[in-house]
Design a protein around this nucleic acid. Structure first.
Lengths: 206, 206
DNA sequence: CAATATTGTGACCGCTCAGTCATAACCCTG
DNA sequence: CAGGGTTATGACTGAGCGGTCACAATATTG
């Protein structure tokens, strides 16, 4: 007896999955993938260890799912905020600000993101391609914005992907600093500062 | 019978330490700290596992030592190249270029540096402070250069530590891209590009 | 309110791996 | 080259943990 296209069973199951993922996110953020145990996750989620395996096939898969969830949500938020802006400057500021804001609201996710992303990329794994794509998509959105900016003479001529890399990394670094508590300023101020430096670096000097 | 202030025993012992550290660096770079086993390190070093424990108290300590070694060498090289330059622009270019060059020559070290550094910082440990200091020292050298540049009206007024963070992160990001094989250009070109963008971002617009 | 199906449990298993230690090989030195 | 000291070895141990499964609790159905 499906309700709204889904059986009750499916709804409950999905709810459990989300509960587990949320608990897992906190545990992985606190202890890192390797030092987090399935017992930790089970305890945080308030279920027995065996239950975890009713909803996920392995520790790795739980981890990857928390990762995917956060990454996709981040990308969508960033993309939608960028779409609201008309020109390259506005879009890039939106990119920086939205990421900083999201990081503030999702510290656990970003802890995971920054401690494990490099690991994913540098140590070949079956999932490597998936995360490569994740980065590529972000970089390409930025690069497209920059290309358009160059066409309109707002951004000076340079390799768009290279410039995108710098925008991305400057933002990345700033978020890391905030996560480590090295910045006292507001998200707004920090975003403006990072944007200001980067924009002067890539804009047409008029 | 000490020779040149050291006994033969000490010399041999130091040599063995270096052998082990070099082997360990490769293993940790390839597999990451958690997936590397002491058997791996022993095999790479061409000794038995027990021998490792004659020279180091634990896996963790071997790892930290490879890390310290590389970080100290990097810092000294960067500092000395920066000292050869007279003004802020030259010093910052030297900072970027020397780091890129060093990364090219010490890929193993940088693999470790980038995959484990965040781990060190975000997961409290007795060593946390040590690595915090390592970063602080680098950032302060940069910040001092920027402060001096501001005094001479070459760099526009801004928080020097914040600006140092951006220089550091843009460089960091670029090295990561090179390690992942995402850049085809020469080190020289890449260094100039990164410097160019950053410098326009922070220099007095004249 | 049985009878059956579904979901949850946690003791347990097998394996990996850091670290140990009894033994061996290799020095010196006299 | 004997014998005492130093360095090397690798089989072994014990702990930790991912994953399983026999059983229990709960839900569903007729």
């Amino acid at each position: 007896m499906p309700i709204l296209g889904r059986t009750k069973k499916e709804v409950v199951s999905e709810f459990r999955c989300l509960e587990i993922l949320e608990a897992a996110r906190g545990v992985f953020a606190r202890k890192g993938f390797n030092n987090a145990t399935m017992d930790d996750v089970a305890e945080a989620a308030g279920v027995a260890k065996g239950t975890l395996y009713l909803y996920f096939p392995s520790k790795r898969e739980i981890f990857l799912e928390t990762f995917r969830q956060g990454a996709v949500a981040l990308q969508e938020e960033v993309r939608s905020k960028m779409d609201e802006e008309a020109d390259a400057a506005g879009k890039i500021l939106a990119f920086v600000r939205t990421r900083l804001e999201y990081a503030e609201r999702n510290r656990d996710f970003f802890r995971i993101y920054y401690t494990e992303f490099n690991n994913m990329l540098t140590h070949p794994a079956p999932v490597r391609q998936e995360f490569q794509d994740l980065y590529d998509r972000q970089a390409n959105v930025l690069a497209e914005v920059l290309r358009e900016g160059m066409r309109r003479k707002q951004v000076r001529k340079m390799d768009p992907l290279a410039a995108a890399g710098i925008v991305y990394d400057a933002t990345r670094g700033w978020i890391a600093q905030r996560l480590l508590g090295w910045s006292q300023s507001s998200v707004e101020d920090d975003a403006n500062f990072v944007f200001d430096v980067i924009w002067r670096g890539i804009a047409c000097s008029k």
